[in-house]
Nucleic acid binder design. Structure first.
Lengths: 328, 328
DNA sequence: CTGTTAGCGCCTTCAG
DNA sequence: CTGAAGGCGCTAACAG
């Protein structure tokens, strides 16, 4: 691999000059710039990113932390988060390293911090954080790293939060279902206890039902298809509609209803393609996870540039999913 | 962040000595080693990985290349590949960078090579490569990087291949289905044209049918649930059983059969959790993608250590999946 | 506008 | 067994 020296020699200039054109410094004459660029092309030169990172004050890496298998996910969500984040990071020329919560859970805050620092990470982008992830919560609060939380309302001077307005989204989908079917008694299958998103969603349904004067029964389904199925089998018949905090639960609810051979409108949350297998049209909230991830990385860049943390709200859509709409 | 110098001062030794204990050199007395380790602990020191990478001849990074959304995947497979690979890499203290085919497809071999070199990558672990991925095929063949291909039979001095024996697996599952239902006429829904795995699977079914003197009809379903459904709707009734090159197709086939209200045994391939939604018991081949990925990374390490490329065959299982066996 | 010169933080011969 | 010194490839003042 050709080095910067070779380029300098080839172009007949000093290494620093080459460095300058590489990093788009203003004060280089067009001529020498051309010379250098020609040499670069000729030698197929590309600066060694490791060396550059070591020597320069450029921002360090950003670590993507994924809480695998926690959301309603079935991997689809995580994968979209990941690819969106990685894509945007490359675009922004940010180095990333990918980590899973499971790799950190058993380590102390100190260890994690040391590890991240040793890897030259300066910013964190965290997906799927919940209050139960104690160490990672502490990591965020420690302020050692600029961090962007997706789906967790943590905002401070150096931590931003990016998400869809969970309250509004849940409210909207409930309303859509309401308009269509005019239910009187609602069964709400809530998600995990200490999940930030779930609290918002739950509140939305509560408020909605209050406003419309509907009876509301809340059950904890923990994002689980199975639990949802069991709950609905047991008490589903007593309600006019089932609103779910996740698509997976909606599928479970649907399965139960089909088995009981009764009809009740059901709606989900997330818009994962698995919904295509629900066997019936369903209403759900569609979140664009790729977009969310890309926005999160952009936000991380902002923080790295020294700007202050903030909350970024992304739009959502309420959609009807047909059987196999989504899967090719 | 404490540096190696701080540790040296704290321990009252030279930096080089610290470095030696860090890298487990043999010639350090136990006493000084203890002193140094104490200092390390006291200062929460961790060597800067970037600097270490730059200065030492330690192996470079390994790039994980994922062909997102190509297999029967629905993300589950890719996610397991990814987490397995990343986990093992951390265990082996190998630095990884994750890339998706889609980020490279439009670039030239030269560009990709330059980029990878600039990122200090020395080894590639490639998931889901097919003959159609021209550039990446060339990348592998160029020999510039040690590479491990999962699901592609590329073996040379510096490239290994890790996979489940596709022929045997497909043969086994066909046999299992045969024993159970004694079909005479088989419909085989094959996968994508230029996929390495598909060719092996197809050959296995051909051989099996020949041996058992069964009528075999092969149709291209391209791993698509929809195509599988359409094919089975059209001609499924004429056959006694449907063997599929992927679970997704098996689900499609099942959906079609259910719609037609006829029973035909169906089997799939991969063992993804989506099979839990097929609505009926199904036979399939279960591959442990996490394990495959971990093995692939280990193999990459071997190559990095200078050993020669080879083929590594991993075991598979033929399993029956019940409704929601797999999804919690 | 261009070149010279220190480092970045660590590893690694090579003397002692 | 330990320490001093050079260098990995590049960037960033600082001179010129």
């Amino acid at each position: 691999m050709a080095g910067i020296k070779d380029v300098a020699r080839e172009a007949g200039v000093a290494v620093s000059t080459v460095s300058k054109v590489l990093n788009n410094y203003p004060n280089v004459s067009k001529e020498t710039k051309d010379k250098v660029n020609k040499a670069i092309k000729k030698l197929d030169f590309m600066p060694n990113a490791v060396a550059a990172a070591l020597s320069s004050k450029q921002p360090g890496r950003v670590a993507i932390l994924i809480n695998q298998m926690t959301n309603a996910s079935i991997d689809e969500v995580d994968m979209q988060y990941l690819s969106g984040a990685i894509l945007k990071a490359r675009e922004k020329k940010l180095d990333v390293i990918t980590l899973f919560f499971s790799m950190l859970g058993d380590k102390s805050l100190k260890e994690i911090t040391a590890y991240l620092k040793s890897q030259n990470v300066e910013a964190l982008v965290i997906f799927g954080l919940s209050k139960d992830d104690k160490v990672i919560m502490k990591l965020v609060e420690s302020g050692e790293f600029k961090t962007v939380c997706v789906d967790a309302p943590l905002v401070s001077d150096n931590t931003s939060c990016v998400w869809v307005d969970q309250y509004e989204a849940q409210y909207d989908v409930a309303e859509a279902l309401y308009k269509m079917n005019k239910p009187k008694k609602i069964l709400y299958l809530s998600g995990k206890k200490n999940s930030f998103v779930c609290e918002k969603r739950l509140q939305a349904v509560k408020d909605f039902c209050k406003k419309k004067k509907l009876t509301l029964k809340v059950e904890q389904a923990d994002f689980s298809e199975k639990k949802a199925r069991e709950i609905v089998l047991k008490i589903g018949a007593d309600y006019d509609a089932v609103i779910c905090a996740s698509d997976l639960c909606a599928i479970g609810a649907m399965m139960a209803l089909t088995k009981m051979d009764i009809f009740r409108p059901v709606c989900g949350f997330d818009g994962i393609s698995l919904m295509g297998y629900a066997g019936r049209q369903m209403t759900t909230v569609k979140q664009d996870f790729t977009e969310i991830a890309m926005t999160a990385v952009e936000e991380a860049e902002r923080l790295l540039l020294g700007e202050a943390g903030r909350e970024v709200i992304l739009p959502h859509k309420v959609v009807r999913i047909e059987y196999l709409d989504v899967i090719h």
